[in-house]
Each structure stands twice: as structure tokens, then as C-alpha cells.
Amino acid sequence: MALTLTCPVCGKRNGYEFRYGGEEKGPRPDEAGITPRSWCEYVHMNQCVAGIQKEWWCHKDGCGVWFTTHRDTTCNLEVDKPEAQS
């Protein structure tokens, strides 16, 4: 157990209380005229950033909230001030 995440409701907790919900990709695109490729881009494709990424988490074993956080994937640590560092 190494990762900790800061739930906006419950505070800093053990990472295993949470569910990873993917890279932040923005709201669902409009359906009209969307091509298979751009739909796939939204659903499956990842940037796989080796560095700080914005991502979704759910505090599944706690309060259940979905939230975004910034995490550095090269050290598996949450980043306090992502804008300042990125």
C-alpha cells in the first residue's frame, strides 16, 4: 500500500479505497455525426503521460464521490499545485 489520495470529502486516505476512473478527457462528445475514430479516441485512447496527469477517482470504500486530482505517474504521488509544476 503506497498510494494515498486526497478525497475532497474524507481527506487523505489509502489509495486502495479508491477506484481509478481514467484520464480526464472532458464531457461526453455530441453524438451527431461522430466518427468511429473520434468516438474510439474518447472511449479508449490514452495519452499515457509519464508525468503529471489530471485524472478521475472515486472514493468507493468511503463517501463515494467522484473527483479529479493531479498525480505524477512517474512517482505515483499526488501533486499539490499541478499548475505551478506542469
Binding site: A2, L3, N76
Partner: peptide, 14 residues
Amino acid sequence: MDSWPNYTTQTTAY
């Protein structure tokens, strides 16, 4: 595997 992406090869106590 932990289900979240990361590039560390660190292990976990869990």
C-alpha cells in the same frame, strides 16, 4: 496490478 497507471516499478505492501 494496481488498476491505476503509473510508471514506477515500485511495489506495494498491499
